[in-house]
């Protein structure tokens, strides 16, 4: 039975990718472009050059991290739509800690700043968890509202107190505390921004996979996600699980700051996330909330992200936004259809 379910999963992922490619091709044909030309250019630009591949990896890195945080919440059936706010609050705090203490701590500033960012995001994520437990308020509405509140607060503190004059960014950290680029180890990535955060992201995904599927804590999270009432009878403290899933899940989203601050620009900049918190929802759902799967779906989205820039000369790069949205909608629809007609559920 298990293998049939796995087959069904593979089937629905493959079919939804196919559907998306077909729908996007129709759109391209409708505006008079040759889809085959677009796809072949995308593939040769991304996979044909070390730089292209490196850029795809660089774009995939934050998606893996944020996706892992969301997977933790989604596995517990908590619809955390608030990653955008959580990660901005955390990354902002991370950057302040980083530029303030980089003189004193040297490389030690990296773990210190990570902890600061993590705590801020985690606390921000605790609010909807708390409201859900104490007042029974749906986390969907609170997390959406808190996105706007977080962005407004960050913007306020940034613009009014912290930003470097006439910019929307914080001070830059010292060059000596940057994380090494992948091109320092593999020369062929020369010029791309991909850095060691990518390796960290993969380790994080593996760790989360282990935690979710091989530990008691992970089992409890999934049990609460599948059936909160039954979990209670099994002696699982549902409220505690909701708290921890939100706390850790939101905390993890802040780690996207490592890639941007320590690996790329050296500062927090307003708008750096560019809807990352929402795109990650698509990445996570496509991987069916499985952290290992997220590595692959995030890479796919990274390829599309950079690939959009690469094909921009023949078709606007925004086509990839449409492609990404179509992926999420087709996986939702086809998953259900496969469930009804192949697994005979529902």
């Amino acid at each position: 039975m298990m293998s049939r379910k796995l087959k069904a999963n593979m089937l629905s992922i493959a079919l939804s990718l196919l559907t998306t490619i077909i729908l996007t091709s129709i759109l391209l044909l409708a505006i008079g472009k040759n889809p085959l030309m677009v796809y072949s250019m995308l593939i040769s630009e991304v996979f044909g050059t070390g730089y292209g591949l490196g850029q795809a990896i660089f774009k995939a890195t934050p998606l893996i991290i944020c996706g892992c945080g969301l997977a933790l919440c989604f596995q517990a059936s908590l619809f955390n739509i608030g990653a955008e706010g959580q990660l901005n609050a955390g990354a902002f705090a991370m950057s302040i800690a980083a530029y303030t203490f980089d003189d004193y701590l040297g490389f030690g500033v990296l773990p210190f700043a990570i902890i600061c960012g993590f705590i801020v995001s985690a606390l921000w994520g605790l609010i909807p968890a708390f409201l859900k437990i104490k007042r029974g308020i749906s986390e969907v509405i609170t997390t959406i509202m808190m996105n706007f509140i977080a962005l407004a607060l960050v913007n306020y503190f940034l613009i009014d107190f912290i930003a470097v004059k006439s910019t929307v960014r914080t001070e830059k950290i010292l060059d000596s505390v940057f994380i090494p680029k992948l091109s320092d180890f593999f020369g062929s990535f020369q010029g791309s921004s991909a850095n060691l955060t990518f390796v960290f992201a993969i380790l994080l995904a593996v760790f989360l996979y282990y935690m979710l599927y091989k530990t008691r804590f992970g089992y409890e999270i999934r049990a609460v996600g599948l059936n909160p009432t039954a979990s209670k009878y099994l002696g699982i403290k549902t409220n505690k699980i909701i708290m921890w899933s939100f706390l850790l899940g939101a905390g993890i989203t802040s780690l996207v700051g490592i890639n941007f601050i320590f690996g790329y620009k050296g500062y927090y900049e307003f708008g750096f996330s560019n809807n990352l918190g929402f795109t990650s929802i698509a990445v996570t759902l496509l991987a069916k909330n499985n952290p290992i799967g997220i590595i692959f779906t995030a890479f796919l989205f990274g390829v599309l992200d950079y690939g959009g820039l690469a094909v921009n000369t023949i078709v606007p790069k925004e086509i990839m936004l449409v492609f990404q949205a179509l992926v999420i909608l087709s996986i939702l629809a086809i998953d259900k259809i496969v469930k009804i007609y192949y697994l005979k559920e529902d």
């Binding site: 739509i81 929402f278 929802i281 698509a282 606007p316 925004e318 449409v322 999420i328 909608l329 939702l332």
Partner: peptide
């Protein structure tokens, strides 16, 4: 989830 997908689709289509 469908709503999130629709928001991405409609915003993306308008931009494109």
């Amino acid at each position: 989830v469908t709503g999130v997908g629709f928001n991405l689709l409609m915003a993306g289509t308008a931009k494109f």
